[in-house]
């Protein structure tokens, strides 16, 4: 199956990009439908691509609809912000993050804007379509939990591989694991520097790897960010995940991380994929 994919791809690649008409696109769609493979962004580049040459941020508010996620707000005995479901907290943070990033000139795509059910494949499809012709990208899946302390940053546990022309759908992230790990380092230092001047102190962050079906299929530097209550050494909750100020501190740290990641990407590391450098974003 892999050999067939490569063979067809080579045929596609030799044709003139401008001659890639409806029939060729049809063949590609059929190929994608027939095999669980995903095309690399460079292949999907089209002259009329909406995000062509831009830096694109994909925000995935995890859970939604029938899937409530974790029940939150009990860590501090419901003292801070009351009880809430994970799906509503991730959506609220997604909306805040989107508006702050849009204000800074980022092209932002969200997987959901309301309380709808989406499976992990649908989320990855939205992300992969959005970053298909982008010059640089970052994908964030937002979660919240009562367990642990501070922000948990997760990179896919897939073994890193060199990016291939066609990657198996379930392991498409493997070619991006190295860049995702770099991006995780940028997010981690943004958390370390967060809360300065606000008096609340930085958000403690831990880095980890996990098997995450949505992230594992994404063709972008992708992370899952899980926020948990901030606790003291003896386990006392300082800030619960339902606390709006704490959520804002996390969102602000993510904005700073994305500004930094975009400037690193613009610096040349991520521009060798055929598209021109970013024109969409503004660096502060």
């Amino acid at each position: 199956m892999r050999a067939l994919g490569n063979l067809r791809l080579r045929g596609m690649h030799t044709s003139e990009p401008r001659a890639t008409g409806a029939s060729a696109a049809g063949v590609l769609i059929c190929l994608l439908a027939a095999f669980p493979f995903v095309a690399r962004p460079a292949m999907a580049q089209t002259p009329n691509g909406r995000n062509s040459g831009r830096f694109v941020v994909v925000i995935d508010a995890a859970h939604g609809g029938d899937d409530n996620g974790a029940r939150l707000g009990d860590a501090a005995g419901g003292q801070q912000g009351g009880q809430a479901s994970e799906k509503s907290i991730t959506l609220a943070m997604s909306v805040r993050l989107r508006s702050l990033l849009a204000a800074r000139g980022f092209t932002v795509v969200t997987t959901r804007e309301s309380n709808v059910t989406l499976d992990s494949d649908a989320r990855a499809q939205i992300a992969n379509r959005a970053v298909a012709s982008a010059a640089g990208s970052a994908c964030l899946s937002l979660h919240a939990s009562e367990a642990g302390s501070g922000a948990h940053i997760f990179v896919s546990s897939l073994a890193p591989t060199a990016p291939t022309r066609f990657a198996a759908w379930k392991t498409a992230q493997a070619g991006y694991v190295e860049r995702s790990t770099k991006f995780a380092g940028v997010v981690n230092s943004a958390f370390e520097q967060s809360g300065q001047g606000g008096g609340s102190g930085p958000v403690p962050a831990t880095l980890g790897r996990a098997s995450l079906p949505g992230i594992d299929s994404m063709t972008c530097p992708a992370l899952a960010i899980e926020i948990a209550p901030v606790r003291t050494a003896n386990g006392k909750v300082i800030a619960d995940v339902t606390d709006a100020d704490y959520q804002m501190q996390v969102v602000q740290a993510l904005v700073n991380a994305l500004v930094e990641w975009k400037s690193e990407t613009d610096g040349g590391a991520d521009t060798g994929r055929g598209a021109s450098a970013s024109g969409g974003g503004q660096t502060p």
Binding site: G69, A70, R71, H143, E146, A147, G148, T206, E226, A228
Partner: peptide, 9 residues
Amino acid sequence: HPSGILTES
């Protein structure tokens, strides 16, 4: 079991 990426992993 508590719900969350960290705790479940």
